[in-house]
C-alpha cells in the first residue's frame, strides 16, 4: 500500500542534513512553502545550498532561513526584493555565495535534472557577463551556451491538493517551479491544503504525477508571505 502522508512539516524535513542541496519552490510568495521552510529552520540544518528563484521577503519564509545563517550558497535568478534586506546584507558582507542564473535557464536546468539530461544548449545569456567561463557552440548559424543540469537532495514544494499517492494539483501561478523541482530532487516534499484518497483527483487534471513525490504534508491554512510581512512578523 502506498501512503505518502507524513504527520506535519517537522516530520517531513526531519532528515535534511547539514550540507544538503534543497530546491525551494515559489515565485515571490506564490507557491512558497512557508511552513516547510519554517520547519527547516527549526530542524537546524546548516551549510545548505538552496536553489530557488528569489530570496524571500521581509524576515519570514526563505528570508528567515537566510537570516538564520543556514545557507552557504543560493542558486537564484532574482535575489532582490523591495521589502527585504536579508540577502543583500549577507551578500555584501561576503557571507553567502550566489550563483546567478537567468530564470529560463534555471527552470530548464531543473527540468533537465529531473529528466536525466546532464546538459543542454540555450541561447539565453550569450554575449553577456553570465556567459563567462561557459562552453559555447554554433548551431545553424546561431551561438548557444552549454548549461548543466541541477539536481537536489530535497525539494520543498507547495501544492493545493494531493492524494495519498502523491499526485498533485496546484493553485494558479503558485505552480511555477513545483512540477520541475519535484522531478529533480531525490526526496520531494509537498505541502498541500488538503490530502484526498486516490481517485478523488481526476487523472486528466493531475499536474505532478505521484512518482515524482515522496512525502505529502497537509497544511490546511498556509500562511501567505505578504500577510506575514504586513503584520511585521519574523521567524522564529
Amino acid at each position: 500500500m502506498i501512503d505518502k502522508r507524513v504527520k506535519g512539516p517537522g516530520e517531513a524535513v526531519a532528515d535534511i542534513p547539514d550540507g544538503a542541496t534543497v530546491m525551494i519552490g515559489g515565485f515571490g510568495e506564490a507557491g512558497s512553502p512557508v511552513e516547510l521552510i519554517h520547519a527547516l529552520i527549526d530542524r537546524g540544518a546548516r551549510d545548505l545550498t538552496v536553489i530557488s528563484n528569489n530570496t524571500g521577503s521581509g524576515e519570514v519564509g526563505l528570508a528567515a532561513l537566510l537570516k538564520a545563517d543556514r545557507l552557504a550558497k543560493v542558486v537564484c535568478s532574482f535575489p532582490r526584493t523591495a521589502n527585504s534586506t536579508v540577502f543583500p546584507d549577507l551578500y555584501r558582507r561576503g557571507k553567502i555565495e550566489l550563483e546567478l542564473v537567468p530564470q529560463g535557464t534555471l527552470a530548464e536546468r531543473i527540468r533537465a535534472g529531473g529528466a536525466g539530461i546532464p546538459a543542454f544548449y540555450t541561447p539565453a545569456a550569450v554575449g553577456t557577463p553570465l556567459a563567462e567561463g561557459k562552453e559555447s557552440r554554433v548551431f545553424d548559424g546561431k551561438e548557444y551556451l552549454l548549461e548543466r543540469w541541477l539536481r537536489a537532495d530535497f525539494a520543498l514544494i507547495k501544492g493545493q491538493c494531493a492524494d495519498t499517492h502523491g499526485n498533485v494539483v496546484y493553485n494558479k501561478t503558485a505552480r511555477n517551479f513545483g512540477p520541475i523541482m519535484a522531478m529533480a530532487a531525490k526526496v520531494s516534499i509537498v505541502q498541500v491544503r488538503s490530502v484526498v484518497s486516490p481517485g478523488e483527483i481526476d487523472p486528466e487534471v493531475v499536474v505532478t504525477p505521484g512518482i515524482f513525490v515522496d512525502r505529502v504534508v497537509e497544511v490546511p491554512n498556509p500562511a501567505h508571505e505578504s500577510e506575514l510581512v504586513a503584520a511585521g512578523a519574523s521567524y522564529p
Partner: peptide, 8 residues
C-alpha cells in the same frame, strides 16, 4: 545586488 530574472 545582481538580479537578472527572465530578461536574458
Amino acid at each position: 545586488i545582481p538580479a537578472v530574472g527572465g530578461a536574458m
